[in-house]
């Protein structure tokens, strides 16, 4: 008999997980040796990987504050990973007390940890679901309970779409998600790219190979390919740019060169 759709195949902590690797890059200890081993191998090729993750976190923080300032009080963060610090609900609920946040991840360990972190927070919840099955997300009790889809939502797809291969059609998944959102909703997105990495292409490919080896291929897309996710959106100024250039609060020149790898953008549905 087929396993129920919501049940993960199995939990194998001898296999590296991208969310735990991400935690390691950010100096956390929510990870196992397999995760650290994969992270160290990737860092041999791209020593600045942690700076890219940090830039992602910093961008997310600015984007969430932007959304809160624009009056948005509902957040759907898909691919939220392991909550460490500066999480969306902390930023959002600081900016707007009572802001509602639903996290989504398909990593069962990340979900279990998120549940513990969010315990006692009535305005935040986590859903175990896959980005590629938008209906599972939108029809989840957590989303139904916390989010009013008749009102604008900020949909966060931070550092997740580059883990979706073209054959799985990430564009269709994003389109299906955003189709369910009310006008005025925001799409907040970052994506890895060879563009902007302060290394010759060959070296960055070494890091990409590490992700392929752990069966979580990293799909580097060009700026144009990433811009396609925003088709039909009004881009929020300054558009799709390297992370430090998106509404910076400090001089981008002071940023680590690695922080400029990949692109970030926010679009508004009309």
């Amino acid at each position: 008999m087929e396993r129920p759709a919501w049940a993960p195949r199995s939990i194998d902590i001898s296999v590296p997980s991208v969310s735990r690797i991400y935690d390691y890059y950010l100096g956390g200890s929510h990870n196992f040796e397999v995760d650290r081993e994969a992270a160290r191998r990737a860092m041999e090729f791209m020593p600045g990987l942690p700076k890219i993750m940090q830039a992602n976190r910093a961008f997310t923080r600015r984007a969430v504050r932007y959304a809160a300032d624009a009056g948005i009080t509902q957040f759907l963060d898909i691919g939220s990973g392991i909550p460490t610090f500066g999480n969306v609900h902390e930023v959002a609920q600081t900016a707007r007390p009572g802001a509602r946040v639903v996290y989504v991840d398909h990593d069962p360990v990340a979900v279990a940890h998120s549940q513990v972190v969010l315990e006692g927070n009535a305005d935040a919840a986590v859903v175990a679901a896959d980005l590629l099955k938008p209906r599972d997300i939108l029809a989840s009790p957590q989303v139904e309970q916390l989010l009013d889809l008749e009102r604008p939502v900020a949909l966060l797809l931070v550092a997740i779409l580059h883990f979706v291969e073209d054959t799985d059609d990430p564009y269709a998944a994003v389109a299906e998600l955003t189709a369910a959102l009310a006008p005025g909703s925001l799409l907040v997105l970052t994506h890895a790219s060879y563009e902007g990495i302060p290394l010759p292409p060959g070296r960055a490919e070494g890091a990409v190979d590490v992700y392929r080896d752990i069966r979580n291929p990293l799909i580097m897309r060009s700026r144009d390919e990433i811009a396609r996710f925003f088709e039909g959106y009004d881009m929020v100024e300054p558009g799709l740019v390297p992370m430090p250039h998106w509404r910076p609060e400090t001089a981008p020149e002071d940023e680590d060169p690695y922080a400029f790898s990949g692109f970030a953008g926010v679009g508004r549905t009309s």
Binding site: A7, P8, I11, I13, H30, N31, P108, A112, Q115
Partner: peptide, 19 residues
């Protein structure tokens, strides 16, 4: 944090076992 992630893995395994 090690304890937390190990507990999370155990909990997740419990969910799988239940399923």
């Amino acid at each position: 944090e090690q304890e937390a992630i190990a507990q999370a893995a155990l909990r997740a395994q419990g969910v799988v076992a239940q399923a």
